[in-house]
């Protein structure tokens, strides 16, 4: 039925840490431009799932195809694939020894061989977009958490990725800063970015998600559009979880 191929295709993935199975028979497809929100209790494998998509975590079996590249194909350069997949972390992980501007230009200049001036121009546009242009020459320690996370989003965008992964981007933030980061993410979603977001922000999930994925114990228990998911959850486990957090 689909005329376009999925941009992420995860099929029957199992992941082990030693003898502990973190993902069990996980399958998920994401279409270009689709926004997927992943929720579930702590330890359910949400981060692990997200991190398999850019192979920060290796899978034990199954297959993952990202934008036409099979991740387990040894002839594929994983670093090239990662350039297409931006990632935003809970703890921001800005490069602490570099200014905000340098954080944004490092990868485009070194990896995409962009001219410094061109990379800086693009970086300034992105910083303006996320509302921290005035902090371009500051160091990460001088920024608030919300500002750091917005810079982190801009840093990922500087590589012009086709996909953006977010792992609990607002969980480390003071409540008053959550909104400013979510706003940036909503804007990005409106512009048509393909996004996979692990979050506990149910308002964001309702507003932005095309589908919500519920995980528990390393399995995907339920995938549904937000309306159906929040109002008519199928699994007992999903209902208990939603009751706990809402």
């Amino acid at each position: 039925m689909n005329v376009v191929d999925p941009i992420i295709q995860i099929e029957h993935v199992n992941t082990f840490f030693g003898s502990f199975q973190a993902l069990t028979d996980v399958s998920l497809t994401v279409q270009p431009g689709e926004k997927v929100v992943v929720i579930g209790p702590s330890g359910s494998g949400k981060s692990t799932l997200l991190r398999t998509i850019n192979r920060l975590e290796k899978i034990s079996s199954g297959s993952i195809v990202v934008d036409g590249h099979a991740l387990d194909d040894p002839s594929q350069d994983i670093n090239k694939i990662r350039e297409e997949v931006g990632m935003v972390f809970q703890s921001f992980n800005l490069f602490r020894h570099m200014t905000v501007l340098k954080n944004l230009t490092l990868a485009p200049v070194k990896l995409k061989k962009q001219q410094k001036s061109q990379a800086e121009k693009h970086a300034m546009e992105l910083l303006a977009k996320v509302g921290v242009a005035d902090k371009a020459s500051s160091y990460p320690v001088q920024l608030s958490g919300g500002q750091q996370q917005r810079v982190a989003i801009a840093r990922a965008l500087a590589m012009n990725p086709a996909i953006m992964l977010f792992d609990e981007p607002t969980s480390a933030l003071d409540p008053e800063m959550i909104g400013e980061v979510l706003d940036v993410m909503v804007t990005l979603a409106r512009e048509g970015m393909t996004m996979v977001v692990v979050t506990h922000e149910m308002g964001f999930a309702r507003e932005v998600a095309d589908k919500v994925v519920f995980m528990d114990g390393g399995r995907i228990l339920e995938i549904a559009p937000p309306g159906t998911f929040f109002d008519y959850p199928v699994h007992e486990r999903t209902r208990t979880f939603l009751k706990q957090i809402l």
Binding site: L56, N79, R82, F95, L111, A152, R155, A156
Partner: peptide
Amino acid sequence: EASLSLGF
């Protein structure tokens, strides 16, 4: 991880 995720 941040560096690897950018493609380094």
